[in-house]
Each structure stands twice: as C-alpha cells, then as structure tokens.
Design a protein around this nucleic acid. Structure first.
Lengths: 107, 107
DNA sequence: ATTATCGTCAACCATTTGGTTGAATATACG
DNA sequence: CGTATATTCAACCAAATGGTTGACGATAAT
C-alpha cells in the first residue's frame, strides 16, 4: 500500500537529492560527475541515485563503464497535481526559478 | 542549514499526514476528530500534527481544552514552485482532484 | 597483460522515524 | 468537589535513513 507519492515526496525531502535533480536539469551526467561537487562518498551518491531512480525521478543508462543519469520530470506530475489541489499557487515564473536554481547550485 | 523544503517534503512523504491534510481541506478539526478514522493511537496522531505544524502546513489553535487544526496551504507554495520548475505540468483540473481526494479518503 | 577508472555491494554505525503504552496536565461537566 | 474528556509527555522499541569504509566486478587505457 505504499503510494507513489510516498516515494516521490520522500526522495524530494533530501537536499542532496534536490540539488542532484537541479544539476540534471542542465544536462545528463555520469555518476562520478554527479558526485564531484559533494563532500560525501561516491557510494553515498550512488545510494541517492538509487532512491531517485526508484521514485522514477531519474533514469540510469549504462554505456560502457559509465552510467548516465537522466532527469525524468514526469515523475513529479502526480505530486505536483496533488499539491496544487490545496491552493491555486501563483503561476510559475521561470525566470525566478532559474535565479533560485543558480542560488541553490551556488554558482 | 535545514531548508524549509526539507521539512515540507518530508511532512508530505507520509500517507497518514497527506490524508490528514486532505481531511482539513474540508473543514477545521479537533485533534480527537482528526484521529478518529485512523487505526493508530492518539499520541501518534498528535506527533503527526506536530510535524505538520513545524512544516507550516497546518496551524493549531487551542480554545478551551480542544485544539483546532487548520490547513495552511500557503506553506506548499515554495515546494510547488520548485517542482513546477522541472516541467510545465498540466493545469489542475479541480474536479479531477476532488474525485481523487474522495478516493483517497475512502468515502 | 597490467593497471586505472567507474560504479556497486556488504557490513557497519549513529540518528531519525513512526509507532506503542502509561502517566501527567488542562479544561469542562454534574 | 470529583469525574470525564482532550491532548501531550516520557520512555521505550523496531525499522528506516544517510553516512562510512573496504572489497569487488566490469570496462577502458597503456
């Protein structure tokens, strides 16, 4: 009885994982490159990626010895719709969102 | 350095808490009445309500010996905007959402 | 063939989470 | 006053979470 919303919201609750998703918004990335900006072990990043994959938020495609991570934003749709049912939030200003992302990615 | 998004998404990751929010969409409720449909102890519900309060998703107003719980949907705005940055999801069909809620509330 | 790189696995650890029960604190009722 | 109701607190427990390290299986490079 564990809902898809459970795993999506739980995946989004961790700041490392949200940052990873924001990174993947710019481009597909190999696991090692995803890990590079973080101060935690590669194994820890690997676990985060597994959680994101199980939530459907990313997909992983192994080509040769490198595994490419790709954002799958559709997995957010149900959760997004659920939340919007609680209020009509201001329409998304994508410029604002980009500024927000730049701040969060710290560059 | 624990983000507001952390606590909001974490609060939403639990199905009991999401159901409580959906219940509060219809009306403000006392703690005991919130607990009634669930098969867990009142103390457990009290903890869930504390988590929702700390996330800002509800407020609690004690009048006499009863504590009224009120939905605070504005707390979802930042999280909703964050998610929408990942894709332009279909505009919310409120009729669909109500059907969904009825199903989730099981009545 | 050897060595280096990519990524996961397994075992472990500390902390958090979601639940329990029983006692405690208010407030309301008769 | 004494009792019932509403809610939280405290102590406890099992399971999940996020992290570590070291070994391991692939694949690529020299």
């Amino acid at each position: 009885m564990t809902d898809a919303l459970d795993t999506v919201f739980a995946a989004l609750a961790d700041p490392t994982r949200r940052t990873i998703l924001a990174m993947l918004l710019e481009d597909d990335m190999a696991v090692t490159d995803v890990a590079e900006p973080f101060d935690i072990s590669l194994a820890a990043i690997s676990k985060h990626l597994t959680i994101l994959t199980r939530a459907g938020l990313i997909s992983q495609d192994k080509r040769g010895r490198v595994k490419w991570c790709k954002l799958e934003p559709d997995a957010m749709r149900a959760a997004s719709v659920w939340m919007q049912g609680f209020g009509q939030f201001t329409p998304v200003d994508l410029d604002d969102f980009e500024k927000f992302l730049e701040a969060e990615l710290g560059d």
